[in-house]
Every structure is written in structure tokens, then in C-alpha cells.
Amino acid sequence: MEQSPPRNTSVTVADVARMAGVSKATAARVLGGYGTVSERVREAVTAAARALNYRPNELARSMTTGRSGTIGVVVGDIENPFFSLAVRGITDIARQAGFTVILTNSGENAETEKAAIRTLLAKRVDGLIVSPASESDIDHLREATRSGLPMVLLDRGSEALDVDTVIADDRHAAETVTRKLIALGHRRIAYITACDTPDHCFRMVQDINTGSVRRRIEGYLSVCAEAGLTGMEKWVRVGAVKSEQTHSIVAELFRSPERPTAIIASDSMIALEIFKVHRQLGLSIPGDVSLVSFHDADWTSVTTPTVTVVRQPVYDLGTTAAKLLVERLNGAAPAARKVVLKSEIVERASTREAYGDC
């Protein structure tokens, strides 16, 4: 009977082959998941690998198969519940397909994103899922696709990249919530986003490099213009990146002589800070200000009042992106696809009719 290797010796394919009574090449086919062997041989090799506690050498496997078995994912802010849920969708599909996810965080910074992409390419990932920090600074993504690496854009598209893209219907959702607020009599409607400009002031939609947010602001401004509300650009506030910046922006708005009667928060982290500041200043939601937030974060349904939200299909964005990438990794080669998933407006208790000087 073959003796098991000593405990301090790394178990190799050759060790597994000897125990199973097959050639090293046959054992490698079974352990690597390629080629054809009989079911009897497969069971013998699998049993031997289990008995020896065999762990594959991923570098050697990638050199043999041309695959690392990994997918690289780059998101804007992993602390944001939106991205956390999307990544959950990605990992669920990747795991089912036999892939491991390597997750990196860009912090919504294009230079950090470039460094992350370089690291993932060095690790020989089989494909990429990226939420670009900037839609205008994408040469690094273009170079990655030119090398033949499959890529899917998540939540943010780019007309300059011929790759699969999965987004939500952001503009339509923003149009819907803006119409609802205007129908309630609101005229001073602020929109707050983490996206920023060099001087921290918003002047035009072209200032916004993040496609999902740009589409929302386009929808908001379009509906305001339809309703005869002019100069609404002044109500768009940028730079709400961290809680400190958001607190300052919201406090300034609330203390202004022309306080907004309604606020649209571009994500749930901003909405949460709005909720904190209004209480600190002794204001009431929705008595003094109505609030609508993009993303149906868990906390929005348990506060007093509960918060009206745009419920985006976040998990489905992640699963759809992963499915498109896995299809390409498995040999599918259709033209680049753009998938737009529908959002839902969930009306709760944080909005009401505007009264007084609006």
C-alpha cells in the first residue's frame, strides 16, 4: 500500500496519482476539470485527493488551463449598502459557476481604480466587472478589453466601451419622484449627490462623470423645466462623499433663508445623514422638509417616519452582470449587450404636500 506523504510535505498531483493507481496526466485531468476520463477513474482520483487533503496549486493550474478561476470586481464604495448588495449578487452567481471573486474598492477615485485594475490584471483574473469612477477617464478599461479580457460595466455605462453593461432606469426613476414632489406643491427641491466637481459647485450635467447620477440629475432637471421651474441647477449639491461633508451641505441648506421644502438623496448614506441633521436642528420630516432617497436600505423602513425610496434592483444588477460575464467566459460571443433593469418607487411617510411660501 502506498504511504501517505509526511505531514510536512506538500501533497502533489503525483502523490494523488500514486494513491489512485493512475498516471499523473490522468490525475491532472480529473483535478483540473478538463479532458475526459471514466467515472471509475474520476471517483478513484477524487477519493485519493480527499484522503490526502490535496490542495491545488492555482498558479500551476492557471498555466495549464489558461484560467485562474477568478473574477475581478471594482466598485466605488464598498461601505455603501448599494454596492454591498450588488457584490452579493455577483458572488452568488460566480460561486455557482465555479469562480472566486477578488473585490477591490476605488473610493470613486479614477487613479485608485487604475491601480486596482493593474493589480487584478497581474493576478490574471479571467474577467472584470467594474463600476467606473469616471466615464471620461477610461483608457485603462479600454486597454484591458483590447487585450481580450471580458468585461462588464455595473450600474454605470460608457458609450466609448464596446462591452456588456447593466444599469438601472435611473433617469426614469428621477423623473417619477420629481413629478411626485412637484405634484405635492414643492418648488424648492434639492438634489444631493456624492459626485463632485473641482470647485465643489454644480453648473451643468456634463460636470457629473458618474453616468447613473448624471442620468438622475438629467431627469430631475428635465421635469423641473417641464413644470416651469427655472434655475434649478442651484439646488443640485455635489461633494457629499463622507458624513462630514454631507452634514455640512445639509446643515447649510437647512439654515438657508430659502430652505428646500424637499430633498432627493442620491443614495441611502446621504439620506441617513439628512435624517440625523434634521433632528439636530429641531426640524420635522415631512413637516418641514420632504425626503426621498435612492436605494431601499434596511433602515429606511424602520425609522420614524419611514422614508420614501427608489427601490433599485441592486441584487439583480449584480447577478445579471455576473451572468453576462460567465456567459462570455464560457465561450458566448454575442455583440455587446446593454441591460436596463426597472426601479420601483416605494411611497412611505417622509413626503407630504408643501405648505406656505413654496
Rank of each mutant, 00 (worst) to 15 (best):
M1V: 14
M1C: 11
S4I: 08
S4H: 14
P5R: 13
N8R: 14
N8Q: 09
V13P: 05
R18V: 10
K24C: 07
A25G: 12
V37L: 05
E43I: 11
A49S: 06
A49W: 00
A51R: 15
P56K: 10
P56T: 13
S62Q: 08
G72S: 01
V73G: 05
V73M: 04
I78A: 08
N80R: 03
L85V: 13
R88A: 15
G89R: 01
F99C: 06
F99H: 12
T100Q: 12
K114Y: 07
A116H: 09
T119S: 13
D126L: 06
V130I: 12
S134F: 01
S134C: 06
S136G: 11
I138A: 09
D139S: 15
D139H: 10
L141Y: 01
T145C: 10
R146P: 04
M151I: 02
R156L: 03
G157L: 01
V163Q: 00
A168G: 14
A168E: 06
R179C: 06
R179F: 02
K180H: 08
A183H: 07
D199Q: 05
D199L: 04
H200P: 00
C201Y: 09
C201F: 08
M204G: 15
S212A: 12
I217D: 03
E218A: 11
G219M: 06
V223L: 05
E226G: 11
L229R: 05
E233F: 08
E233H: 08
E233Q: 13
T246Y: 01
A251Y: 04
L253W: 03
S256D: 15
E258P: 00
P260R: 03
I263D: 04
I264R: 00
S266Q: 12
I270Q: 00
E273H: 09
I274G: 07
F275K: 07
K276I: 14
H278N: 11
L281W: 04
I285R: 03
G287F: 07
G287W: 09
G287T: 08
S290P: 02
S290C: 03
F294H: 04
D296I: 02
W299Y: 13
S301M: 13
T303W: 00
V307Q: 01
R311H: 11
Q312S: 12
Q312K: 08
Y315G: 09
T319N: 04
T320Q: 09
A322Y: 02
P334R: 08
A335S: 10
A336N: 01
L341E: 03
V346A: 08
V346P: 02
A349C: 13
T351C: 14
T351M: 12
R352V: 11
A354C: 15
G356R: 13
C358I: 15
